[in-house]
Computed example of a mutant assay.
Amino acid sequence: MKRIEEFGEISSLIAPYMKKGIMSNNFMVKDGYEAYIGAGDLYYECSDSTLILLLDCRTHWRIFYHIKGLEAGIVLPADKPLVMELVYKNENEAVVSQLDFWGSRGFRPYIYRQRMNGIPEKLLLESAGKGQHAVKNAACKQAGQIRAMIAEMFDPYLGCIPSLDEVLEYINKEEMLVSEDGSGSILGVLHIGSKNSANFVRHLLVHPDARGKGIAKGLLAHFARSVSGQGDGRIQLWVKKDNISARGLYEWAGFKYDGWQSTGLIKNP
């Protein structure tokens, strides 16, 4: 396993696999590569038929792959859990083949998600967010609490848990919204983002003691109103298939499934 030292290495590694028929789950973009390489966290293993990118997430390895054939041999570390995510539209033969390929190598599916889209003007949120709980941009002093809440309520492997420094960066970019009670205690958190004309819900959570009080609706309403009229105003998110309460909220709000889904795989040492 070799560490990738500079961004230029990526092009030469991936170039042989940029052709039809290659199996891949690699959806990283330039910014992602640069951040991981700069932190010294991106490694690779390659052979004549495979390229495996390994992201060191401290507690686990995250796998991104390019594979030319299902007979390919794979060499992977065994010192901590290995996780990966396959993103696809409709479960076709190619997806099933890849799931079987990794299943024969000790990986098992453990998390399933679906993608949803909504247009703020169509969201049924006008009456939400007008209650007693204020929604505002998070403050830097709240970063530790926000990070702890996200880490507690999202999957430790594929839940995209941000570091404390990343939370501070999001706060400075006004991408962290919080809902507070009268004493300033955080009741809910909405982590948002945007790229081109699309807006994203990255994390949405409500403290267990505050559920059923319209906190999540209020956070979504605030976000929807803030992006209304910007580009096409679309908001996109991913939701776990088995998170019935979250799915119910998004469906009520007017979000629609667009056919894209993902399967998360894990292999424990």
Rank of each mutant, 00 (worst) to 15 (best):
L53W: 06
Y65L: 11
Y65K: 07
Y88Q: 03
A198R: 11
M18R: 15
W102A: 00
E71Y: 07
R115K: 14
N117A: 12
Q261V: 04
E166W: 05
R234D: 01
L204C: 10
D242W: 11
V167G: 01
D79S: 02
G21Y: 04
K240A: 11
A78P: 00
K30P: 07
S47L: 15
F101E: 02
V96T: 10
A139V: 04
Y257V: 10
I192C: 06
Y36G: 01
R108V: 13
L51D: 05
S49W: 05
S262G: 12
I150M: 03
E5V: 09
F101A: 04
Y44I: 06
K122I: 00
E126W: 08
E152A: 15
H60P: 08
M84W: 10
A216D: 00
E91C: 12
P208M: 08
Q261P: 00
L164W: 05
E175A: 06
S24Q: 09
I192K: 08
H66D: 06
S226I: 09
R3W: 01
F27H: 14
R62F: 08
L168P: 02
R113F: 02
Q142K: 07
L219A: 08
L219H: 05
G103H: 01
E71H: 09
G184D: 08
A72R: 11
V189I: 15
D258S: 11
Q132F: 12
Q142W: 05
G182V: 13
A72H: 04
C57G: 06
Q230G: 02
I146Y: 08
G73R: 10
G182N: 15
K80R: 15
K256W: 05
E126C: 12
N137F: 15
K122F: 06
L265K: 00
I192M: 03
P208R: 11
F107M: 03
F200M: 03
P16H: 07
N26I: 11
A143P: 07
D155S: 03
Y36S: 10
E166H: 09
Q230E: 15
M116F: 14
A78F: 06
L219S: 05
M1T: 10
I67T: 02
I74P: 10
Y88T: 09
N25G: 12
C57V: 07
G73H: 07
A198G: 01
V75N: 09
R115M: 10
R108D: 04
I14N: 03
G182S: 15
S49P: 07
L124S: 14
G73C: 12
N196E: 13
Q142R: 07
G144A: 12
W252M: 14
M153D: 13
D79A: 04
S262Y: 10
E166Y: 07
R202K: 07
Y36E: 15
D41C: 08
A143C: 03
G231I: 00
H203V: 03
M28F: 13
H222L: 01
K89S: 13
R247G: 15
Y88G: 06
K240D: 07
G254I: 09
V227S: 11
P208S: 11
Y43R: 12
P16K: 08
G73S: 13
L168M: 13
L125F: 00
T263Y: 13
G21E: 05
H60I: 00
K80E: 02
G264A: 12
H207Y: 11
